[in-house]
Design a protein around this nucleic acid. Sequence first.
DNA 1: ATCGATTTGTTCGTATGTATT
DNA 2: CAATACATACGAACAAATCGA
Lengths: 253, 253
Amino acid sequence: MIPTVKKVNLSTQLVEAMVKLIETGDWKIGMKLPSEVDMAVSFHVSRNIMRESLKVMEKFGILDSQAGKGTFVSDTAVINIHNMHFFESLKSNSSIEMLLETRLIIEPELTYYATLRCTDEEIRSLRDILQNDVKKHEILNFFHTDDFDFHVYIARYSRNTILSNLLFTILDQLKSSDYAKFNNYVDVDVKNESFVDHLTLLEAMEKRDPLLARDIMYDHIFSRITIINSSYDTDMILSRKRKEERMAEEKEK
Amino acid sequence: MIPTVKKVNLSTQLVEAMVKLIETGDWKIGMKLPSEVDMAVSFHVSRNIMRESLKVMEKFGILDSQAGKGTFVSDTAVINIHNMHFFESLKSNSSIEMLLETRLIIEPELTYYATLRCTDEEIRSLRDILQNDVKKHEILNFFHTDDFDFHVYIARYSRNTILSNLLFTILDQLKSSDYAKFNNYVDVDVKNESFVDHLTLLEAMEKRDPLLARDIMYDHIFSRITIINSSYDTDMILSRKRKEERMAEEKEK
DNA sequence: ATCGATTTGTTCGTATGTATT
DNA sequence: CAATACATACGAACAAATCGA
């Protein structure tokens, strides 16, 4: 195989240099930068290259250019630099295990809030989605990754846009990963199990029982993880034990 | 006040147009695009403008340009378009309530995993941070938002880079929001409370008790939320009740 | 209110390096 | 090796927006 070391453009080098200038405090929030031509001279590049990197910085919300006035360091520059780093870490270099673990962390809680906050109308829409999935399942061999709509909508109904958007990108990454291919080979029984989970989850939401809904979601995702990685549960034993205790308690009542 | 409607650049219009082309499927994954000159002609812009938008698309991992070969639609184009949308939603338009709620969802779980996975060395480093904070607290009037380091490191020790990076940007947004200013006016007793929380949390981690550590972190963040928004707990009553039940149980043993 | 200086927005022409055939 | 196609990079120029005298 050829190594093909990606040659870095001048503009990307410039972006990194400018980010560093802001991080070190040389360029302060709200500060007016020199004109494009002056900066091009001091960075030893042409004005076009300078502009290319400025446009990238602008798109990330780090700089702000206004015709006739000049270029300024955005008020949210530092925040958006961190957002940019976060974006880089999101850029498709997460393992499937980590993606699933992230789902395990956020989805049960999102389900909890969705059960508390969603309207009756929204619950009905979830039932529609589910019935549609069942139909598809009967006709053709349905993929696990195709029932993601159900999860996406629950997350959205939580009203927490940060995490529901995060979940959206995570499910998207799972869809185009080996995870999706893997799911084509799983047993029919396992697939049916998934549908049952969704149904009982919806029923818990209809009863407006947020804790129950959350736990069903937890088990639902957890079982998916153990299918992929059976050794994962070593970390989770305590958590599951705790849940079982709670279930036993409730039965006593 | 002046409305100052931000005039959209040609390059940003181009970016949006190209994103749409990929979303509609007109530009497919891996596809080779026409040359820069040809595209510039068909989009009715100059080459430099074309290049500016291509550079942005490249930075977001949607397109991939290689000298001599051409420009291609990245394999991860669709994923990164969703990442880009997520990025836009992160760009400092989240309410303080939502930021804190997100902390409440992810931090307890991250603490749980950190307690399971971090090394003894890392726990010692947490104690160092804490002792440093205590010293600062004694000398000068210490801000709540200055003890974020403790939270950041715990999140990092969870080994879940997706959520620890997310927390990093969230804390950063809180730091530069009204939340930080608000914290300057809180009572000294409340600030001391925060330190005690951190100490008991660290002790739980040293005992390698993930569930306890998680619950302490939950209460710690929850109390911060109620200071800001005392009506928030209406949603949370169930969750807290459940926790109290568990605590009562353990005392019986 | 006009003019002029400054700065970004946009275009064109040209040269160079790189990869494919 | 030569020819071709392409991205990379530079320089000069004009248009449009902004601000101050």
